[in-house]
Nucleic acid binder design. Structure first.
Length: 530
RNA sequence: GCCCUCAUCGUCUAGAGGCCUAGGACACGGGCUUUUCACGCCUGUAACUGGGGUUCGAAUCCCCAUGAGGGCACCA
């Protein structure tokens, strides 16, 4: 049985890069009729959290990347959390110890750092080996167990990169059991991939140099290693690594500009608006803390968009899961025949490891946005509504209170003119609350002699309409559009009065949904106030 | 510093020796459509990192240089 797995460590949110790895594994397993396993690698007791694990599961489900084995599916209840499998690792480690393939070490972290420093200074690579001189003697203190790497060249037969050989003198004896008794990543992956029957490992290229270690471990344990395939990496457009730090960096830059703009140097006004203490903000700005949640709230209060990095960031920004997946798949993979917009099923039909490329890619948000628009336009109304509601669940816009019926009306109106749900959410606020009037639009279209004349003509036309359904409103709207020299000359004045700005969906649909009272009162307010 | 990987338009990519005058998509420019904004349609600009080989012939194969990225933890 062919099996792939995605094995994130629960030390944060699910990153887009991780999502791509998960997708590739998911596609690969589904394509070949195998099984897809989800395993939580929580061997780092300090950094792993249960909340993070829960968040990752939730994001995987939002993306629609379901697993055949893993938390909540198949097997015992905690079988897919490494922290629950300690006895398994211990037995294996004891076996290696007995076979003489592993040994205890007594250096403290400080001693190791000092040894490394000496080599660094001499510009020589430091490799810990069993036979090296100067190893610490047995002590009472905590010990660590290392694997005795064989002194031989090791060749990885990578399904994407081809053969890659690492010379014998490049290896070092990796730690397989930490002093807290937990296995290290290197040991736990090998033990689990074997135990769970994983046959194909698709992981990011940053793991390439780990592979010889894993291969040696398989051999020492007498096991058949899986097929490895290392995927190219994904970077920001400026070729920096995509990381949560991008968010704090962007927030700091935006906040600095805000402080200058609004003369709020010590962030006292912002602190009040964001409901946090000024000290917190100052500590954040001074880079004393790297709190991404704080960065998000602060950015939110000054209307600053932070770069999306984690899967949930994209959800909050109003991207559809399928569009994100489709876009992400195309970095490093091309289905051929110039195909780009692919449904999940089409991706499944076309996917293969052979068609994954070797070159690192960059994350072009503009193309993602375009792709999301494509998905929005081709989605059915039911699909769109479901996706929109999943967006509404995690955000807080005025349309949060809208009924399904109203949401459907809005979607019909905005479908062709939005690239993300957030875009619609920002633009449709005037349906739910008084518009924030755009002063420039007002002075250009409303507070002019012509604009006033139009509004005075428009009001009675609409006031005469009692049946406010779209069909009944159509003749009145036609009449309004025919006002003035050229067709539609009066539209902008009405648009500004009704929506607050120079841009909105077509007026007929807009006022039909807005309702008679609000439409008329907004028009009237502009006539009488001038 | 050492080891490893990669290298086609600004970006994602197609290209597995002649089909390449290098194709597609995003972005950008121009036009059409239009009650605003979009959508849609038409159209334009734009690339084989450099140098050596191999070959009748190289974006495609080899070598070197350069550039980019990854790794060198009691993190994964």
């Amino acid at each position: 049985m062919m099996k792939t797995r995605f094995a994130p460590s629960p030390t944060g949110f699910l990153h887009v890069g991780g999502a791509r790895t998960a997708l590739f594994n998911w596609l690969y397993a589904r394509r070949l009729g195998g099984k897809f396993i989800l395993r939580i690698e929580d061997t780092d007791q300090v950094r792993s959290t249960a909340e993070s694990a829960a968040g990752i599961l939730q994001d995987m489900l939002w993306l629609g990347l379901n697993w055949d084995e893993g938390p909540q599916v198949g097997g015992g209840k905690n079988e897919y959390f490494q922290s629950m499998r300690l006895t398994t690792y211990e037995e294996l480690i004891q076996k290696l110890l007995k076979d003489g393939r592993a040994y205890e070490c007594y250096e403290t972290p400080e001693q190791l750092a000092a040894m490394r420093a000496i080599f660094d200074k001499a510009k020589r690579p430091f490799r810990y080996r069993r036979a090296m001189p100067g190893r610490a003697l047995r002590t009472e203190g905590p010990t660590v167990i290392r694997f005795d790497m064989p002194y031989e060249d090791i060749t990885i037969h990578d399904a994407i990169l081809g053969p890659v050989t690492v010379r014998a003198d490049e290896h070092d004896d990796i730690i397989i059991r930490k002093s807290d008794g937990f296995p290290t990543y290197h040991f736990a992956v090998v033990a689990d991939d074997h135990a769970m029957g994983v046959t194909h490992v698709l992981r990011a290229q940053e793991h390439l140099m780990n592979t010889p270690k894993h291969l040696a471990l398989y051999r020492a344990l007498g096991w058949e290693p899986p097929t490895y395939a290392h995927t190219p990496l994904v970077f920001n457009m400026d070729s920096t690594k995509m990381s949560k730090r991008d968010k704090t960096r962007a927030a700091r830059a935006g906040l600095q500009a805000y402080a200058k703009r609004t003369a709020d140097e010590n962030y006292s006004k912002l602190a009040v608006a964001a409901k946090v203490s000024p000290e917190q903000i100052q500590a954040f700005m001074a880079k004393k803390v790297d709190d991404t949640a704080l960065a998000a709230t602060l950015a939110g209060t000054i209307g600053l968009d932070l770069p999306e990095i984690d899967v949930q960031d994209f959800r909050r920004s109003g991207y559809m899961a399928d569009a994100l997946l489709n876009f992400i798949a195309l970095i490093g993979w091309a289905p051929g025949e110039n195909r780009e917009v692919l449904s999940r099923q089409e991706m499944l039909n076309l996917f293969s490891v052979e068609t994954i490329g070797k070159t690192n890619g960059r994350f072009d948000r503009k193309k993602l946005t375009w792709m999301n628009g494509e998905y929005i336009r081709k989605a059915s109304m039911d699909e769109l509504l479901a996706a929109l509601k999943s967006f509404i669940e995690v955000t807080d816009y005025p349309l949060k209170a809208a009924s399904d019926a109203v949401l459907r009306e809005l979607l019909a109106m905005y479908k062709d003119r939005m690239a993300t749900f957030a875009e619609m959410a920002r633009n449709c606020g005037f349906f739910f609350q008084d518009p924030v009037y755009d002063e420039k639009a007002k002075s250009k279209f409303v507070n002019t002699d012509e604009g006033q004349a139009f509004l005075r003509q428009i009001y009675p036309i609409l006031d005469a309409v009692t049946d406010w359904r779209k069909e009944a409103l159509t003749p009145a709207m036609e009449q309004i559009l025919s006002l003035g020299e050229k067709k539609g000359a009066a539209a902008q004045a009405m648009r500004v009065a009704v929506s607050g700005g120079a841009v909105s969906p077509p007026l007929l649909e807009t006022i039909a949904l807005l309702g008679r009272d609000k439409t008329l009162s907004r028009l009237k307010a502009f006539i009488s106030s001038h």
